[in-house]
Nucleic acid binder design. Structure first.
Lengths: 233, 233
DNA sequence: AACGGTATGATTTTCGAAAATACGGTTTTG
DNA sequence: CAAAACCGTATTTTCGAAAATCATACCGTT
């Protein structure tokens, strides 16, 4: 039953507003819309084919997520980037992700172990198939996100998971920002493997330490190779 | 120059949407709109005097804050309450607030100390003036919020402060929920005083312990006296 | 009576026009 | 000459009507 010909757009979610929100979010994270760039309605209207009101709703939602900056009576713009913001996001991620990993290792059942193992497996297969700059590959991005999501999925708190997801998105935008200037991705595959093993063997202290290093070194990488973009604002 | 006759409403923020968002948030927190209650546009339209679109924008923003539940194609409703949600909110608050108190005590300067002392002073004066159920007094609510805000204000992370503020709002709704059934407020004044002293004397471990107890006992109170409302959903 | 499908009314969602506001360049005034 | 006031344009913000969708009651069939 192919409905793809019937519904022209609206790939995600039932309402147009939810779909636009999703597409805008993706585009901001991927830096297809540059940080600080003004988001004028005429432009968005043409680009996304939705009306003022619908776009406004999407922008409002993204403003609450921290990806868009709303200036009352003066429109919206893509949230600017800065060293300070990168530090804050990294810091908050460590605080929360560390706690969620601990809880997941404490509470995770068989399904959790299976999810962690299988998402890592898919991630590795994608990396093997195409070992170059992974951020350019949408499939890698999804698989990477799902592996990290699986790791914390057994924490038992939807509230903290939602907060974590927002911070993950904000951090991923910084990764994209530096992707064009980074010489070579470091050994992420190995790190992911080690994190998985620590988690499955219920070695919470080790998993926590690995995750913290993983997050911080990614952030350091961004600060190093995209530094010129962070100060220019 | 009294403009109050010119602009009929719009007390907070420049745009109507921001104002409606603010008023709706207050009303949901104060349980003037009951948890789970459907938010139909006709009703809201009459109550707040704004158009569909403007209301929709406000509801979208509040949905991102976790105070409103958006069901695609089936409208909005006030976010439901539950024991599970109360536990999650309490838990997340402890995790974050404890960390922010530590950082504030570490980094707070003279202005921070002054803010902590003066906000507590105002809170105590209001309590002294009118020592009965404080949640009914809007001034007490504001002063109470400002004291707790001041305590963490020197943490240095706008990102974490924003998350903390959302969780504070969600927790305050639960406090209102149980306010009508609680026999007598316990000795909050004394707790606040002790927290202030621990913070000012830079005794981080003590301050952290007091804050955690403060948050958890408030939550326990809610669970005890509003338990019937939490299970009924 | 039970079931499935359909028409009807209620409600949400989307749209583009209209009003309100900000921006930039020009003139006016002290 | 500098600063303030003005005016036209660009842009955002708000509105209510129109389209889309959902919920319910109704009807015919088994």
């Amino acid at each position: 039953m192919s409905e793809s010909a019937i519904r022209p757009r609206k790939e995600f979610g039932k309402t147009i507003a939810a779909d636009i929100t999703h597409r805008l979010r993706e585009e901001i994270i991927a830096c297809g819309l540059a940080p600080g760039e003004p988001l004028r309605f005429d432009v968005l209207r043409e680009r996304f084919g939705a009306s003022f009101t619908t776009l406004r709703e999407a922008l409002t939602a993204l403003a609450a997520e921290g990806l868009v900056d709303a200036q009352e009576q003066r429109g919206f713009r893509v949230a600017p980037v800065s060293r300070q913001d990168l530090v804050e996001v990294t810091d908050a991620r460590v605080l929360i992700e560390v706690e969620l990993i601990r809880r997941s290792i404490e509470r995770g059942d068989d399904d959790w172990e299976i999810a962690v193992i299988s998402t890592l497996h898919r991630l590795k297969r994608i990396e093997h198939r195409d070992p170059e700059h992974p951020l350019r590959d949408p499939e890698w991005k999804i698989a990477h996100r799902q592996f990290h999501q699986a790791l914390v999925s057994a924490c038992g708190s939807a509230t903290l998971l939602a907060i974590r997801a927002e911070l993950f998105d904000r951090a991923e935008r910084y990764r994209h920002l530096s992707a064009n200037f980074r010489p070579r991705p470091r050994d992420k595959a190995g790190e992911h493997q080690a994190i998985m093993q620590a988690a499955i063997s219920r070695n919470a202290d080790l998993a926590v330490q690995l995750i913290e290093t993983h997050i911080r070194s990614t952030s350091d990488n961004v600060a190093t190779y995209a530094g010129h973009l962070l100060d220019a604002e």
